[in-house]
Simulated scan of single mutants.
Amino acid sequence: MNERIFMVKSEIRKEYQQLRNRYSVAEALEIQQLVNQQIHHWQITTPQSFLSYQPLLSKRELSPIALEEKWATAADLPVKCYPKVISATEMVALTIQADTIYEANVWGIQEPLNAAVFPPGQLKAMIIPLLAFDEKGYRVGYGKGFYDRFLEKCAPDVLKVGICHFAPVPEIDDIHIYDVPLNYCITPERIYEF
């Protein structure tokens, strides 16, 4: 009989951040290149608007820039947004322009300063940072809940894409009713669809 392995988010978060921290600069670069290759070969429609993020390099986050660039080469350039935390529980999507100025927040994440708020309900896609995900597409982030609360304001059919260093864990044991699964997760080996 195939035994299922269940883990809770706090255990996954700790374990997978430790695994990421063990990567050397060369290993992290190699993983990023493999992810970029997956993105390059991925056949996906360009959304009219999307939310991405500035990677937190101190946590060895993978950069979504290859996917941003793939979508930016479309005939009709999509609206690109980055998140900005505006309170202890809330973030907004801000429209990015060539002249956007950034400033690091309390976690060291570069956020736009001089940008207009984009309505969450009008976003067509989101690239969501994560530490790990499971075989159903549920993700483990950093535990602050910003993306989960933001997703409540988005259209139900918003495309949700994650980028992860690792293959999925079998199942996250403590999923709650407000957790929203990804549609896709890009890893160095393959792109998972849920």
Score class of each variant (00 low, 15 high):
Asn2His: 10
Glu3His: 15
Ile5His: 00
Phe6Ser: 14
Met7His: 14
Val8Glu: 15
Lys9Ile: 02
Lys14Val: 03
Lys14Tyr: 09
Lys14Leu: 13
Tyr16Thr: 05
Tyr16Arg: 08
Leu19Trp: 04
Leu19Phe: 06
Leu19Val: 07
Asn21Cys: 05
Arg22Phe: 09
Arg22Cys: 12
Ser24Thr: 15
Val25Ser: 06
Ala26Thr: 09
Glu27Val: 03
Leu29Lys: 14
Leu29Asn: 13
Leu29Ala: 13
Ile31Asp: 07
Ile31Cys: 05
Gln33Gly: 13
Gln33Arg: 13
Val35Lys: 03
Val35Pro: 02
Gln37Asn: 12
Gln38Arg: 08
Ile39Glu: 06
His40Ala: 15
His41Pro: 01
His41Thr: 11
Gln43Lys: 12
Thr45Tyr: 08
Thr46Cys: 13
Pro47Asp: 08
Pro47Thr: 03
Ser49Trp: 15
Ser49Val: 10
Ser52Trp: 04
Gln54Glu: 14
Gln54Pro: 00
Leu56Ala: 05
Leu57Tyr: 13
Ser58Tyr: 02
Ser58Ala: 12
Glu61Ile: 14
Ser63Gln: 08
Ser63Val: 10
Pro64Gly: 00
Pro64His: 02
Ala66Gln: 09
Lys70His: 15
Ala72His: 11
Ala74Ser: 12
Ala74Phe: 04
Asp76Cys: 07
Asp76Thr: 10
Pro78Tyr: 00
Lys80Ala: 00
Cys81Arg: 01
Ile86Pro: 07
Ser87Asn: 07
Ala88Asp: 14
Ala88Ser: 13
Val92Gly: 00
Ala93Gln: 00
Leu94Lys: 15
Thr95Pro: 00
Thr95Phe: 00
Ile96Leu: 14
Asp99Asn: 13
Glu103Thr: 09
Trp107Arg: 06
Gly108Val: 13
Ile109Tyr: 03
Glu111Phe: 07
Glu111Thr: 06
Leu113Arg: 14
Leu113Met: 00
Asn114Ile: 05
Phe118Gln: 02
Pro119Val: 11
Pro120Gly: 04
Gly121Asp: 12
Gln122Tyr: 01
Gln122Trp: 02
Ala125Trp: 10
Ala125Pro: 14
Met126Gly: 04
Ile128Cys: 02
Leu131Glu: 04
Phe133Asp: 08
Lys136Trp: 11
Gly137Cys: 12
Tyr138Glu: 07
Val140Trp: 01
Gly141Thr: 09
Phe146Pro: 09
Phe146Glu: 02
Tyr147Pro: 10
Asp148Val: 11
Arg149Lys: 05
Phe150Tyr: 15
Glu152Met: 07
Pro156Asp: 13
Asp157Gly: 01
Val158His: 00
Val161Gln: 02
Val161Cys: 10
Val161Ser: 03
Ile163Asn: 01
Ile163Asp: 01
Cys164Trp: 05
Phe166Val: 12
Pro168Gln: 02
Pro168Thr: 04
Pro168Asn: 04
Val169Lys: 01
Ile172Thr: 10
Asp173Gln: 15
Asp174Pro: 07
Asp174Ser: 07
His176Glu: 14
Ile177Arg: 09
Tyr178Leu: 11
Tyr178Phe: 13
Leu182Glu: 05
Asn183His: 15
Asn183Ser: 14
Asn183Met: 06
Cys185Trp: 05
Cys185Ile: 09
Cys185Ser: 13
Cys185Glu: 01
Glu189Pro: 00
Ile191Asn: 07
Tyr192Gly: 14
Glu193Cys: 03
Phe194Tyr: 09
